[in-house]
């Protein structure tokens, strides 16, 4: 119970800090908008899609992948910021000094990162759908489910690596370098599942990919939770 209160206090503290400084969210929103606009300009709004006769433009065809590019790259900013706040105030050492299970710190940081990432996604998905002229109304529940699972895997391993690299001088470079190889299974499963949701699941593969994504999340969450204490040790 005490550790749950500690995790909640950490979530509240991180969200309050972010609400007042807006350091991560503003950067994320700007970066996500840049990614969407650059791809839109580079590929052109009317370029024909890869599947002949589908009636899709190239942007619509590539949207699932582009969505995850935007989510992962902007998410890196949130992850990096979440422990930077602690390092700037020396709070990482203070967090280590408090009694209680250090897993509570991981749970709190993970939840705060997920909330910030989720808020960004709630803006990113409709804005990109409008920008690329994609009809998501019927697909929204399945799409949100897949995005939630993909974000959980990303934030689980991302929070762990953000803590691990927080003490490094080159942490902004090291975080994506270390993180993306580990994230490959999450990226593959999330992009594949999103593609099936958006383009239609003719072969009935969607549930298989959702199960794979859920299993990857479970493994990553377990490993990161059990080893987090070592990640924040000096």
């Amino acid at each position: 119970m005490g550790d749950a209160r500690r995790a909640l206090a950490l979530v509240r503290k991180d969200l309050l800090t972010e609400r007042r400084s807006k350091a991560a969210f503003n950067a994320m929103a700007f970066f996500a908008a840049m990614v969407l606009f650059i791809f839109s300009f580079a590929l052109g709004p009317d370029a024909p899609g890869m599947a002949a006769g589908s009636g899709q433009t190239l942007l619509q065809y590539l949207w699932p992948g582009l969505l995850w590019v935007a989510i992962f790259f902007t998410g890196i900013l949130a992850l990096s910021r979440s422990f930077q706040v602690e390092m700037e105030s020396g709070g990482m050492e203070a967090l280590r000094l408090y009694p209680g299970d250090k897993k509570a710190i991981y749970a709190g940081k993970l939840a705060a990162n997920l909330i910030i990432l989720g808020a960004m996604e709630l803006i990113l998905i409709p804005v990109s759908a409008i920008l690329y002229n994609i009809d998501l109304i019927d697909k929204l529940p399945a799409l949100l489910g897949v995005v939630a699972l993909g974000s959980l895997g990303f934030a689980a391993v991302g929070t762990f690596y953000a803590a691990l690299t927080a003490n490094l001088r080159a942490r902004d470079v090291m975080l994506p370098v270390l993180l993306f190889p580990v994230l490959v299974p999450v990226i593959v499963a999330a992009v594949k599942a999103t593609t099936l949701v958006v383009r239609g699941d003719l072969m009935g593969e969607l549930w298989t990919w959702i199960r794979i994504l859920g299993l990857i999340d479970l493994v990553l969450l377990t490993v990161c939770t059990l080893t987090f204490e070592f990640a924040i040790e000096e």
């Binding site: 503290k13 800090t17 400084s21 020396g90 050492e93």
Partner: peptide, 10 residues
């Protein structure tokens, strides 16, 4: 600690 270890935004 020698530094305050306080959160400036709070």
């Amino acid at each position: 600690p020698p530094q305050s270890y306080l959160y400036g935004e709070l």
